[in-house]
Amino acid sequence: MANLTFRPFIPLIIFVVMAIFLYVGLSLNPREVPSPLINKASPAFTLPQLHAPGKTLSHTDFVGKVSLFNVWASWCAACRQEHGFLMQLSRQSIVPIYGLNYKDQRDDAKRWLIQYGGNPYVASAHDLNGRIGIDWGVYGVPETFVLDKKGTIRYKHIGPLDYQNWTETILPIVEQLQAEAS
């Protein structure tokens, strides 16, 4: 029977299949839930700016150029981790960074920026009760949205930005979007 020559390899085959499934499954990050907002227009909002409460920031401010929209808070430990990199990025002026200051007290947020090396944002919207965060599907801070020239969400990064995920993933997307006609 042809089966007999094949049979000794069955445990090996089962092992290999399981190993592949486990390797892929265990290296996925369950925190990275795909966002349904990708390729959708920015959810509408108008919020007071963090540093100038008299002025507002709204989704229409994103139209006309590629931009980043970074969700941050002074109570968020991982935001501290990415802050230095955001400062570096803002100095390079590759792409404007807007902020969504999420469920934070105005004074705490302003103090936090001074304490951790400056303000990398063109402007931050102050979302005191987190209502706009819900419309943007925010569930863990920090999160960063990449918006194209029409203000459409093209990519969402969950977790802190760093040199590696910037150069490998996000910068190529930004450059590609900047090359697109507006």
Partner: peptide, 8 residues
């Protein structure tokens, strides 16, 4: 909920 956070 789904339009903001997905089927998850």
């Amino acid at each position: 909920m789904v339009s903001r956070y997905g089927d998850f």
